[in-house]
Amino acid sequence: MRKNDYLLFVFLLFLTGMGYFLHSHVPTTDGKILIVQHGQNILQKINLQTIKVPTKISIPTEHGHVIVNIDDKGAYVVSSPCRDKLCIHQGKITNPGQTIVCLPEKVLLTLTATGKEGAPDAIIR
């Protein structure tokens, strides 16, 4: 290995780091989708960009209902019939990749980023 080799190596590492850094900071302006799951079933997928007013959704579970508050930035659990209320303590998720879980009620909320295309290819009327 020569000196120049090391320089190139470090330069490429730097590029990768930069790329990763840029990548993880852009998505917040991109669309976010909240996936609402009960057990293995996906109940809903909601595009947060279109939530203009904070909305509450109610997920029916074995012991009652899990109420989730959604706005255009993210979501958090408002109330749950579970004993420990860990899901509520997890607070609000706002970044793609984050999740909130309520194990006793088998509820899973996941935030993902939309693909870069926001607009549909066609609209059926």
């Binding site: 693909g115 295309e117 607009a119 549909p120 066609a122 609209i123």
Partner: peptide, 20 residues
């Protein structure tokens, strides 16, 4: 290579869609 995305018109609001 990605799937087609089709918007479904909102029955009560022609400017909006129900979802994709």
């Amino acid at each position: 290579g990605k799937p087609w995305r089709i918007g479904i018109q909102d029955p009560r609001n022609p400017q909006e869609i129900l979802g994709i």
